[in-house]
Amino acid sequence: MNLLLFAEIGRDIEWVTLGIALAIMVGIGLLMALCIILISRFCQVKEDPRIKEVEQRLAGANCGACGHPGCSGFAKALVEGTATLDSCGQTNKEAQIEISNILGIAYDGNAEPTIAVVACSGGSQCEDKYAYQGYGTCVSQNMLAGGRKACEVGCMGSGSCVDACPYMAIECFDGYAHIDPELCRSCGLCIQTCPKRLIKRVPKSATVYVACSTECRGKDVMSKCKAGCIACGKCERTCPSGAIHLVNNVPIIDYSKCTHCGKCLEACPRHCIKHVHPVDTHEKTITKVEPEKESKAE
């Protein structure tokens, strides 16, 4: 029966081939399903069922910052008790509570979420000692007389951190590394790889950070880098809540005291203090935040 309007399209339903087709489909479906089930039974790797549950609750980014091969490795270590939960900065609080229940360990401390920032903004503004024409990234370049930058702690911008970051949050332009605060999950991989140890963790709620970590005096910095901190101490003097102190020529911000007023940012003649979140809209209206309970030593 040609059901369709085109006379020549379609032919009478051949029930035989239809039956054969069904048989084949069912046969293959059955075969495949059975094989999968059998093999999954036969190849059942004896695993503690809790590992799977823990793994599901972890962030699942396989970033490796906890030192274990991906989240499954970390979950196994957690269940065996060889690892502690706080070495994974990714998992949010509720997940950490659930995991603690599964493992039957107490959940302690609610770590303040942090993000990473690069404590250098010199890059192309900082003089080069030599032109590096070699293979590879900052790590290999650092072996050659401490990298091509005149400033011994200057960022070379060759992207070791870019490779390390599993979230593609870091980009190198204008000669130095920039971390995108929205993407950064503070896994700490870039902190481990940066040969100059320039990348530091600041609380997520911080608004300003010091983008320089040279310990030379002002005169030397002037000769080497146009964007370096000359340790003039203006920021220390203008900060109303005394949150900034110059420790051997490097301003250190104590975020528990910082009231996000932004005065240090304006005062700094060399613009070394920069915004954490590059937002140009609500510059002025940073509201008051009552200092939180000091919980984790930075």
């Binding site: 059901l3 369709l4 339903i13 489909m25 069912v26 479906g29």
Partner: peptide, 30 residues
């Protein structure tokens, strides 16, 4: 349950396809 579901889905799909093949069959002459 897993095996049953997969087999039923294959069955239904196979039947549907076989019917469509016959309805939309383009013979060589055509």
């Amino acid at each position: 349950k897993a095996v049953a579901v997969l087999v039923i889905i294959c069955l239904v799909c196979g039947a549907l396809l076989a019917l469509c093949n016959d309805l939309l069959y383009v013979s060589d002459e055509v």
